[in-house]
Design a protein around this nucleic acid. Sequence first.
DNA 1: CAGTATACGACCAAATGGGTCCGGGATTCA
DNA 2: TGAATCCCGGACCCATTTGGTCGTATACTG
Lengths: 164, 164
Amino acid sequence: MRTEPVGYYMLKLTKKADYGLMALKYLAEHPETPAQSAKDIADAYGIPAQLLAKILQRLTKTGLLRSHAGMNGGYALSRDARKISAFEVIHAIDGPLFITSCTKGAKGCDLTPSCTIKEPLARVNETIIGVLKSISIYDLADQESGKAAVVGTTAVQRLVTLNL
Amino acid sequence: MRTEPVGYYMLKLTKKADYGLMALKYLAEHPETPAQSAKDIADAYGIPAQLLAKILQRLTKTGLLRSHAGMNGGYALSRDARKISAFEVIHAIDGPLFITSCTKGAKGCDLTPSCTIKEPLARVNETIIGVLKSISIYDLADQESGKAAVVGTTAVQRLVTLNL
DNA sequence: CAGTATACGACCAAATGGGTCCGGGATTCA
DNA sequence: TGAATCCCGGACCCATTTGGTCGTATACTG
Ligand code: FES
Ligand code: FES
């Protein structure tokens, strides 16, 4: 649990979701081109092409992307980058998220009745989802040189003020 | 990834952290007794005793609990339940949390330089941590019959209004 | 038809997580 | 002094989840 490699874990989104966000951001930053192939995007970031391909396929199936086979084909955002939230991306790739190990939706865990912690934590979960929903791909893409504070009226800005 | 078992995952805290929170809540609800043994708490919730033991040991090492060996020994909160945040508990058990798969603290992942997503997500992470910090063990414990709305000025209350 | 790209399922290896076992040390009480 | 409790902590195990590969089928372009 703490074998002293480094130490991070917890609340982390999967690498796949990370890759997905990176790809969407990339697409948002290249609106001029009609489509970008999976390989192009993968090469741009140095991530495994085949893996990214499957991720993009999933994003296509959920309607966030539109794909086009054949030469000069590839993927393109299905709508404005401002209208795609980080939540949608993560949800599409990693599935519905819930902060407690056991969900209440279906079967839950065996000791669900005795666990009284779950309920209040659900509220935390809602908050997190709300934050993720308030961030759009556009927000991730536009800050040019990493100067995050300049953004203006985007959700990222809202986040800072919200941060207690 | 979506083999259609049910679907939850993501952003979930580990069961160990869940157990830890449950135990702390339990202790907060029994202030009269000087100490509760690991086994007692484990039995109360039906969770594996040996596992909970190790969790409590860790919480002790980080200073959230005080332990006492020997007969009628056990664990007790080291300070007021109001002064112990959910964040501290989770952090103690699961280690430092970071939303991206790769931390920036130590080595990070190999493609850290090319990944531009990480930075904005770090802000989301800060927000989440803030929320977790604003919740105390006391908040988890006191709402008697699950009527969360009654709480008053606690952090849980704040959360609801905060939730956008 | 040749070439490029997506679609998708099977498969695999490593990491993580939940959980157990067991041999110590304290501490209390008879 | 010892027996009964109880904490401490490392070694280990197993199931699941991840990250990642491969191969093949399909679709589109020219
Ligand atoms: S809900 Fe399963 S342990 Fe809390
Ligand atoms: S930081 Fe490693 S992939 Fe984004």
